[in-house]
Design a protein around this nucleic acid. Structure first.
Lengths: 342, 342
DNA sequence: GAAACATCCGAAATCGCTTTCGTCGAGTAA
DNA sequence: TTACTCGACGAAAGCGATTTCGGATGTTTC
């Protein structure tokens, strides 16, 4: 805390710099911003003066004239932050560190709070807004009459006129099951999470497609309930009871997979030798601490954030945004739960 | 994306409102901001006009005159976000949603990037900065010559002149061990993480203090290595081999505890009957999905964020900040790993 | 030596809002 | 009626930058 300095006086302004350098503020501005109608010697004087005062231009003032603030709002309902942070990082990457700053607002699933935050963001004249939902289910649109471009990431908007970017869960399901098949598995089951989640349904579709393409059928029904380890354990017990010959399991999430693997071991099955397990999310902490480590489908959230930022940019620059939901590619990370470690 | 609207024209300004209401911008400003030198009828006209144009004041312009921006920077190196998000939420609470907005910047452990972000934040004239480290180890100070108040949260600054708020890990260690003792355990061991972490050392001190107060001694040496489940498993095997009669284990983190519990079960010990286990962090996903669920010491990060925000506020209002490291209370969350579920 | 032309610089307008201070008219007191 | 107070309102000066455009130099060119 540096009270002393703060009291010492306000931050240096362009006027101060100009005075010290003995030029007008117009010239000082040009010199500092590298415009070319300034003599080299003058420029040097100005730069030196700025240095001496440790002058930093007031971004607020600049924004006021330029009409854009160089900030973007990230509006989320994802309390836990597993999804929003990779997206944030991707966005930062795309924007370039420091060039654009991101306001992170957590609406906590409360639409009143969301409106509040939205209004605050607009007051601050953000140049764009990225909305990150907490699941991949469609969420209410912020509306069409906003003065800035909006991109929905992870969770799509329920209004097709909005631009939404979501991970391709269907392809993810297919990827997972194809991997199991390529590992020589044929009797494959699917244990997933909450069936009211679009992610669960989309992944199931992908899984079924992958099986069908290989002329295979899933072992038993898809087991739906919730995304927890507990359910993974219960479902596995159930599954092995009815279909003891299963040799591959696609899990709806890493958490489920953790439970699945635990119960498989408890019931005397070795992973991946007897049963190979692949899951979704690639949540590092869970996946790499599992024994064996989890093969998992990664949603490429950072890339999704980057794409969202790019969209915002394009829209700012006047490129008409196409609207509709775009599915971004996912990737499979292979670890010990499907292929035995050498 | 609402290009049409954006093209339709710039956002309404106070001048527009004033014109429609037939008053001067001065009066319009006063009417909207609730100042009292305005006749009720006039105020109504202005408010109506503002409504009609859906006028939103330009926060940038306002900040320019008021000298404060109503924004705060949150500078972090915590990639994973487990620590930074609760802090962010706490800060939002304290600031009041919408009244203050938070710039979240991730330096990714790179000091160049950090300087970059810091500069950007200062350019945007944030009213204060909260620095969130990635562990509880001291981190380099941003320096004393910043024009805004800075508070270090979670990780303290290495400069005692800075104000730092950190969880009281020592009290946490004590809390954990006292709980085990109150559960009737006497042969207690401590399995922790990376001993180069201040958190590991502080917790150990607390644990030892708690034991000493009860005239007990730890079973064996404290086992240090890293914060992973793998280590939890290995350490437990080691421990049971040397001290098969252990009846309580304090773990350095929830991840370690997960490994500990797993191996305890594998080796035929039931939790909590034979061995009670308590850990640190209270990472919900891990703690509540464990079997049994983990009793764990929660660092109260949200409260820490709230405290940090309050500090910033006070400093803005001119209250001299005390500097130095303040240890904030932690709390124990009791679950099934120490007390058998009924 | 004058005209034409660069080159460099500064006065002033502007962005949208807040705030001070002066003005004006109505109401009150004398 | 005059003098005075007071409430309501507006003109104008900032806040800190950018940018336009005209003016003051100095340099070519014929």
């Amino acid at each position: 805390m540096t009270q002393s300095n703060r009291r010492a006086g306000r931050a240096a302004t362009l006027t101060d710099v100009a005075r010290i350098a003995g030029v007008s503020i117009a010239t000082a501005s040009k010199a500092i911003n590298g415009r070319d109608e300034v003599a080299p010697s003058t420029r040097k004087r100005v730069i030196d003066a700025a240095e001496q005062l440790s002058f930093t231009p007031n971004a607020l003032a600049r924004s006021l004239t330029e009409g854009r603030s160089g900030t973007v709002g990230l509006l989320t309902s994802d309390l836990e932050g597993r999804f929003v942070l990779p997206v944030l990082m991707g966005a930062e990457d795309a924007f370039g560190a420091g060039a654009i700053n991101v306001f992170l607002c957590d609406a906590r699933g409360d639409s009143i709070r969301e409106q509040h935050h939205l209004k605050a963001l607009l007051n601050r004249r953000v140049d764009g807004i990225i909305v990150v939902g907490r699941s991949t289910d469609p969420r209410p649109s912020l509306g069409q009459d906003l003065p800035v471009p909006v991109v929905y990431a992870y969770a799509p908007s329920d209004d097709p006129r909005d631009a939404s970017l979501v991970p391709d869960n269907r392809a993810g399901g297919r990827l997972a099951v194809e991997h199991l098949i390529s590992c020589g598995r044929r009797r494959i089951a699917h244990i997933s999470g909450d069936p009211t989640f679009a992610a669960a349904r989309d992944r199931e579709i992908g899984v079924r497609e992958g099986m069908a393409d290989a002329d295979l059928e899933l072992v038993g029904d898809v087991l739906f309930s919730n995304w927890s380890e507990h359910w993974g354990r219960d479902a596995t017990a159930l599954l092995l009871n009815q279909h003891p010959d299963v040799d591959g399991i696609v899990c709806g999430s890493d958490q489920i997979a953790r439970g699945v693997i635990e119960t498989l071991r408890d019931l005397g099955r070795s992973v991946p030798e007897d049963v190979a397990v692949v899951s979704h999310d690639n949540w590092e902490t869970l996946a790499t601490n599992s024994r064996p480590e989890l093969s998992s489908v990664d949603a490429n959230l950072q890339q999704l954030g980057r794409a969202a930022a790019t969209r915002i940019f394009e829209a700012i620059d006047g490129v008409e945004a196409p609207g509709g939901v775009e599915h971004l590619p996912v990737r499979l990370v292979i670890r010990g739960s499907t292929i035995a470690r050498r």
